[in-house]
Amino acid sequence: MKKTFLTLCFSALFSSGLAAQGLTLELSNKTTNNNLPSASGVVVSQEKIYAVGDDSPWLYQLSPEFTIVEKELIKEYPVGDNGRILKKVKPDFEALDIISVSEKPSFVMLGSGSKLDVREWAFIISHDGELKIERSLKPLYKTLRQAAGYTADQEINVEGLATSKDSAFIINRGNGGSNVIFELDLEDFQDYLAGESELIEDVKAYHVALPIVKGFEAGLSGAAYWVETDSLVLTASIEATGDAYNDGEILGSYVGLVALDDLSQNRTLDLSDNLVPLMEGNQRLITKIESVAFTSQSLDKIEGLLASDNDDGSSEFFNFSLSK
């Protein structure tokens, strides 16, 4: 088993109040799954792994070895011979989290919003299978654009979703507009998903700057909430493309941290030094990390998995640990 060790010293303040922190990222078990296309969201629930692909109509349950155990149809879509949803109609499931909706623990999948109408939908499937909701995100994504101060030619491109005790964080990739972490009241978001409200008025937008490679800025791609440190673990990747619709050459990926205290105090935040690149030897690991999930967490360490979509119809997974 080959493992890669990476260390990063942080200049950002954490909730512990320390001025600097060192993180060690350990990767192992690089695995390719050719039967799950375009992995874009991953969560762990009751020691089971679940994943979605941005152009697949299925919610997958995976084994610890990242093979498909079961799959549940999210919605019927026209697919090609390769089983992937046709690009012109794909909902672009890019964000996945487990949230209580109508008092039922549920898988919540969000479309990216990078194509009006087609990609502005949420799908909610409760764990017991009794609740299935298809919910328009059009009003919410309009609010996100306004909160971010986007111009008419800038695009929403939602890539991640994470929840703390009181807030939902919607992660926007900056290849169509800018990298933004949106914060919503969790109860307001739950009511919206359940169809009990049509508008969320209070949305905070935190603009973040990320590393630049070959003239292209990294784009946020996923997040998960680290309870013990009151922080978001972020993933980001770099593609050589200037829009949210077309794929580009993959230039690498990152994992890093931002404390919620830092977000609350800064509506604009430079996270360039808070992210560490994934490396293979002395070279950047050319993979497009899309999502992160935890299998265990403590005050000093988290363990979990990373999901990667390399735009070739397959998916790549890694086990990881991140320790302070």
Rank of each mutant, 00 (worst) to 15 (best):
Y225L: 07
S296D: 14
S237K: 03
M1V: 12
S164T: 09
E316W: 07
A218L: 04
L275C: 05
Y60S: 08
A259H: 10
A307W: 01
R145T: 05
S114P: 04
L199V: 13
L86G: 03
A218D: 07
A152H: 14
S167C: 07
S167E: 14
T268P: 06
S308Y: 08
Y141S: 00
F10W: 04
L140V: 12
E290P: 05
L199M: 10
E201Y: 11
L140W: 06
D273W: 08
L278M: 13
D55R: 05
I68L: 10
K90M: 00
V69L: 14
A223M: 06
R284A: 10
L6I: 15
V276P: 01
D262N: 15
N274V: 01
V43A: 08
L199N: 10
A244E: 12
A152E: 15
T295F: 03
F5E: 14
F107R: 05
D243I: 08
S114L: 02
E249Y: 04
L260V: 14
G256I: 06
E26D: 15
F182E: 03
D273C: 08
N274L: 02
P277H: 06
K165Q: 15
G149N: 11
L263D: 04
I181D: 05
Q154R: 09
L86Q: 10
G248H: 05
D128R: 01
A307T: 03
E217Q: 11
E120D: 12
E239L: 05
N282W: 14
V208Y: 04
A223R: 00
L59S: 04
S314A: 12
G242C: 05
S314K: 11
V203I: 15
E155K: 13
I181M: 06
